[in-house]
Design a protein around this nucleic acid. Structure first.
Lengths: 202, 202
DNA sequence: TCTTGACTTAATCAATCGTCCAACTACGTG
DNA sequence: CACGTAGTTGGACGATTGATTAAGTCAAGA
């Protein structure tokens, strides 16, 4: 009803698509449902986007960008262990803040694996690489072996993914909030044993 | 072509369904594709099963049973920490052995969440409860608080799920084999700090 | 006022999808 | 050997639902 610019409408459609993908899965995310969710007309979608694929490309970009934000919010001046903790916590908080974002991410990764197109793996891959970069940025003083960086990034991703699975399955926010602390403590224990650093402020 | 009993054919269809679900997702798992994968005729599927739902119920039961097997393979005479390690390793080895099984499990859980039918969450829930039961079985000597059991089970599930995500995304078996050890070491570190037990034989 | 961009209605066209029927074939049994 | 039954097949039905578009309406700025 309200007349807004096409650019803003596109943003509406992207948000709507994320909700619909989370609720119905990639295959269930039809143009009709997305238009409905955006409270817009079906034809409006094709006025803003040439095709459904075009819209999904934007969705893809949005999700990737969201990860970039989360990762770049970590403090680059902290120690390696602190940065790792911040990255993990940041990811989990993002999942907690928006279950739809979390669910859509898992859905996109799962879909990408099926298509064995490199395009989908890129979400996972880019995020992992950004984590590595953030970790590398902290360890300017003491040289850290690349394998260590890789391992820490892998553990962060593993813990974050596992956290998301449980949180999405049960949808119990208060339980998930507690579980977040458990997961952080798991990372802390391992980091202490692996790189011998004690968490600050604990 | 070969004439076998309907019971065996049903088993073929279940296995075929798992492959197809892993490859095309739940929504992409059509009766035709499943029949194709089973190298059987489409009508054969409806000769063995009244409906697609009937077949999927069997698939569901098969996956749940597979988890039961993995969990019951753990040695009930070990310590709490050892049992925990065995459970985690058992799950990861099952994933590694059959990516299709791993992918189908994730797919089923994801699908279940969307339908918010309790039926689907049951896969996750039953597995988690079995893990708790196995953990409880070991701690007959020293009474362990229920919250501790819950937490350990949660961490095992989280690590196993996270492992599965990465393994399925990249499909790199040799990398996953190494990552399995990393994940186990993460659990070990946390258990040592949490329940103060040193891993045996390390 | 007239053009342009935002928006809508209603249809088109084409895939499938699950299900089922009727016919055909091999096999074990009487 | 005949015959019933279990296994197997090709083909088609009916219905849903998918993305996309043609053509027309409405509001606002030049």
């Amino acid at each position: 009803m309200p007349r807004i610019s096409a650019a803003q409408r596109r943003s509406d459609f992207v948000n709507a698509a994320i909700e619909v993908i989370a609720a119905y899965g990639i295959d269930g995310a039809t143009t009709r449902r997305i238009a409905d969710q955006a409270q817009a007309n079906l034809a409006m979608l094709h006025y803003c986007y040439d095709s459904k694929d075009d819209l999904f490309a934007d969705v893809y970009e949005f999700v990737a960008g969201r990860y970039r934000d989360v990762i770049q919010d970590s403090d680059p001046h902290s120690t390696l262990a602190d940065t790792a903790r911040q990255l993990l916590r940041g990811a989990m908080e993002a999942y907690l803040e928006s279950p739809s974002f979390a669910a859509t991410t898992l859905e996109l990764i799962s879909w990408a694996r099926r298509q064995h197109g490199d395009r989908g793996i890129a979400v996972y891959d880019q995020a992992l690489e950004s984590v590595r970069a953030a970790l590398r940025g902290t360890s300017a003083e003491h040289p850290v072996e690349p394998e260590t960086i890789d391992q820490i990034a892998y553990v962060i991703a593993t813990l974050a993914d596992g956290f998301a699975m449980n949180w999405l399955t049960y949808g119990d926010r208060s339980a998930a909030t507690e579980q977040m602390e458990t997961v952080v403590s798991v990372l802390d224990s391992w980091l202490a044993a692996r790189v011998g650093s004690t968490p600050a402020g604990v």
